[in-house]
Design a protein around this nucleic acid. Sequence first.
DNA 1: ATTTTTTATACTGTATACAAAATGCTTGCA
DNA 2: TGCAAGCATTTTGTATACAGTATAAAAAAT
Lengths: 227, 227
Amino acid sequence: MASEMVEANGRRTVATISRQSLHGEIVTRLRDMIIEGDLQPGERIYETQLGEELGVSRTPLREALKFLASEGLVELVPSRGAVVKRFSAKDVEDMLIVLRSLEMLAGRIACAVASDEGIARLRSLHDAMVKHYKAAERLEYYKVNQQIHTGIVALANNAPLAEVHGLLQSRVKRIRFIGHEGAERWAGAVAEHERIIAALEARDAETLARELDTHLANGWERVKSVV
Amino acid sequence: MASEMVEANGRRTVATISRQSLHGEIVTRLRDMIIEGDLQPGERIYETQLGEELGVSRTPLREALKFLASEGLVELVPSRGAVVKRFSAKDVEDMLIVLRSLEMLAGRIACAVASDEGIARLRSLHDAMVKHYKAAERLEYYKVNQQIHTGIVALANNAPLAEVHGLLQSRVKRIRFIGHEGAERWAGAVAEHERIIAALEARDAETLARELDTHLANGWERVKSVV
DNA sequence: ATTTTTTATACTGTATACAAAATGCTTGCA
DNA sequence: TGCAAGCATTTTGTATACAGTATAAAAAAT
């Protein structure tokens, strides 16, 4: 049955050598489905139905749901199964407050411990992002943007910090993904990013923290309307 | 919560209103076992064995393990099962850095939004802690101490903040639980707590943040030797 | 007509059974 | 004696089956 599944999926087998367990794959698959809005907030998840849809039995699917429940992407209602978690505007605002604090912390640490290569890599990511901005490629821009924020956190070389940041980021991704900002605000965000990268290159911790602070506060303003 | 009563009259949770599902109970049970050192770091978890020990079958146990894996308390090695996660000294230090940042953030917010009753409740907790200190009741002291730190975060009224704080706190609990500090350091910790509560009562955000900063930095110093 | 009760259906929660993978041990051979 | 290969045991990974529960619909009574 498992071998059939691999053939049916086809594309998934390339990277992982099918080394990862099935429930692990389901976790990433479902996470993507939730983030991309394939499974909508408040929607109830029927295990048999979704299992057949994915070509797996209920057992690994349920295990994956438990994992995602701990991540906070789904909610487990006793004897009524899993529901895609819905976030209120206050929830999102609270998350962004924490995210902002975490990124500021990461930025401060990064200024002290990051390698020159790491910073250079972030600069090139930033350049790529600007290209996408000028080409008005929103989706590509969005993806690289995420990579930059994740990259700053990664530079701090603090695994738990990166982990909790990723945890919250995965929750707001769904929101941000939807939010399409106007041209002038978009330009403002790019300018903020430029200053962020500059501060990082100068290893100026306080300036970097301040820039991240305003950038992420503005980010909330940009997304507030769509929540 | 209600399951404690259930456990009192009989070990099986069948007949009564077991509001929480079985895997949910197993999660809390295993979490306690890990924190209290019943399951030691690096120890491999044999599903059938542990299942029989707890009187449950493998299925809900596995679901519980997936949940704990997402929490970071156990590690899932593909086709070799679950292992209680072992943390290096750097891991713990990194966690405490993040915890410190989160508590400082919570403290700042709490000064602005906490209710007077909430602050008063924390003061009485503090008084209880001092009593335990004077009676040299280490375990009781430790428990109330945890409640105070959790309580400060709770005052901020920010669910995601409380969540990630609790996540990291559950990981370092195991360490701190072991660490027995000397009398003079213990006295220092109590004094720091007194200043923290005072700053909170004065709603002096910056002082509170500074006191939390030094308190938690000292906390790392106190625990460093035993990691 | 409305409310309550009953019944049917579908879904979740748990257990068990089966298949695949890995580890350890024994045996054979150099 | 040392090493390797193969077999056996153990353990995980997955599927399926069964039991319990909630929901919804239909029927009966007020």
